[in-house]
Design a protein around this nucleic acid. Structure first.
Lengths: 227, 227
DNA sequence: TTCATACTTCGATCGTAACCGAAGCATCTT
DNA sequence: AAGATGCTTCGGTTACGATCGAAGTATGAA
């Protein structure tokens, strides 16, 4: 009868393949219905329902009723961060389910990781920020510099508003296709939102891929040159 | 047949109570033998052996043969960090196994969390650093200031050497007894080592408790005054 | 009202993995 | 060499939980 946080309970919740599939699907950041999640997990809706109630009770998922649909999302940023952490750890140990990274080249290039940009483009963005001194990196820990704040300001991103949250502004997130870090945190989220809003890119309907327009791609690459 | 990191595998490894007990025991930072871990988990050595080989194969534990003993430790800082993350998440959702925090008052006051100081004293130390501007906090993200570096220098802690590692210098870690953050990262590790080396405190042989001497306690409290 | 859709609950089956006793291997002691 | 200690492997039992069919509830459409 030990004391302490119930690690095993959390582990069990992440430890079932069907639940893991659902959570991975929700890393796209979009709310999904029970039926969609059942399909993503490859199980019947009855089974999915059981899994979803467990995940909700465990505080990993939140649900929102809307008509006869039930939309599920990750409960909060902490749940997303934990999920990212586990994915990164699994990838770092070579625990991949099939191949070292997504087969779909679009996914490999740019995709959503919970609420920010991952893949080749995500890695490039962070690298570029660090190279020009906009972000300082102590290994994994990231901090925004004054130059960085000024630069983002000209882009029209209100850094001050982003720091008010309890969630960190900059956070590194290990990319499982690139095996390098990309930018998470409220800034990562804001930047992705910015790209989508400006019409540089749009979310693929089905997958987690982020599809850049030729114009958007040109601007993105100009904004984030490689070292 | 989905692509991506195998979350479920990691989850399963953390998801068994016996394994979770072993990992919790290893959060003390000390290497433990298979027999000791079996006792900590409340299972026979046969069962423990099976669990340990799974954890090792999963990249969470590392073992070192020494004579007829086999010493197990957490594989690396990443494994420790993930464990801390899960513990913090579980605590934040109220998933505690018995009571809200350790029963043992010594554990509640000061204990080892993988390799740094947790509990009341750990929280106090971080709070004090932040209050005096030695560490800046963007929510959860921590960064050392120039003043902080100077102060640690006078304490005899070589901050430059600590930043060379790929592991972050400062990292916040959610305390499951205090439900507030304490200081992890290479600095957290170095500070605990400093206290032990100076004879201000010593590790309890059995538990994860850190026992301060009256003299050490006086110095610690003077060094880290409350707001 | 009647039908359709979205989801949950119930009940039963089945597979997997945790568990331990017994036996086996390795290392140290005497 | 003989015995003791630390750990692993094997085999068989057992329990838990993932799964799905069937039936039940809620919301919306006709």
């Amino acid at each position: 009868m030990k004391e302490g946080p119930d690690i095993a309970r959390i582990g069990t919740l992440f430890g079932d393949p069907a639940r893991a599939n659902m959570l991975t699907a929700l890393m796209g950041g979009q709310a999904l219905t029970a039926t969609e999640l059942a399909q993503a997990a490859g199980v019947t809706v009855q089974t999915a329902s059981s899994h979803l109630s467990k995940l909700e009770e465990g505080g990993i998922l939140a649900q929102r009723k809307q008509g006869r649909h039930r939309y599920f999302t990750l409960a909060d940023a902490a749940a997303g961060a934990l999920l990212e952490n586990i994915m990164g750890f699994a990838a770092s140990r070579g625990h991949l389910r099939h191949r070292p990274g997504p087969k779909d080249p679009a996914l490999r290039k740019a995709r959503v990781c919970y609420d920010h940009l991952a893949g080749d483009y995500g890695v490039r963005m962070l690298d570029s920020f660090v190279a020009r001194g906009a972000i300082e990196s102590d290994g994994e820990n990231l901090a925004m510099t004054a130059e960085g704040r000024a630069e983002l300001d000209t882009l029209g991103i209100d850094v001050a508003a982003l720091t008010s949250s309890r969630r960190p502004l900059c956070k590194s997130c290990l990319d499982w296709s690139e095996r390098r870090s990309h930018l998470a945190g409220t800034l990562g989220k804001a930047l992705l939102a910015h790209f989508l809003e400006k019409g540089w890119a749009r979310r693929s309907g089905e997958s987690r891929a982020v599809l850049f327009t030729p114009e958007g791609e040109r601007k993105f690459l100009a904004l984030f040159p490689t070292g």
